[in-house]
């Protein structure tokens, strides 16, 4: 059996959770509400995060455009997606919501612009 210690972030309480994994069976203790159980299970079995960063813009009013993954991605893909973001370069104008990188690092998730950058 595997034990994990983590802090719940569903509310300011910050309950210290203990998640035990025994084969397919995942149990959470230390939570004081049902949200803690859901959070604890997901964090241990399939943790995800939204990645935000910036992509270089050519010919824009600003040198960078802010971006995010369109949905959250598996936590272990964060640095692979960051590599794709760092390698990318786009031409102005960029509109908020534009897809800048399709299927970033094979995550199945697109990287999209979170602001508009007009031509210089």
């Amino acid at each position: 059996m595997e034990m994990h210690e983590l802090t719940c972030i569903q509310c300011p309480m910050g309950c210290p959770l203990t998640v035990s994994v025994d084969g397919d069976k995942v149990t959470v203790s230390g939570n004081t509400c049902p949200r803690g159980e859901v959070y604890g299970k997901k964090e241990i079995t399939a943790p995800t995060r939204t990645v935000t960063s910036t992509v270089a813009v050519e010919g824009g009013e600003l040198p960078r455009v802010s971006v995010k993954t369109a949905t959250d991605i598996p936590k272990d893909k964060i640095f692979a997606v960051m590599d794709a973001i760092r390698a990318a370069k786009v031409k102005a104008p960029v509109l908020i919501g534009d897809v800048l990188i399709k299927n970033a690092a094979g995550s199945g998730v697109d990287v999209i612009a979170t602001k508009t950058v007009e031509k210089a």
Binding site: T50, T52, S66, K68, I96, T114, K115, T116
Partner: peptide, 10 residues
Amino acid sequence: EELTGPEYAD
């Protein structure tokens, strides 16, 4: 919904 800062400003 969860937005980034620039999206919220937009």
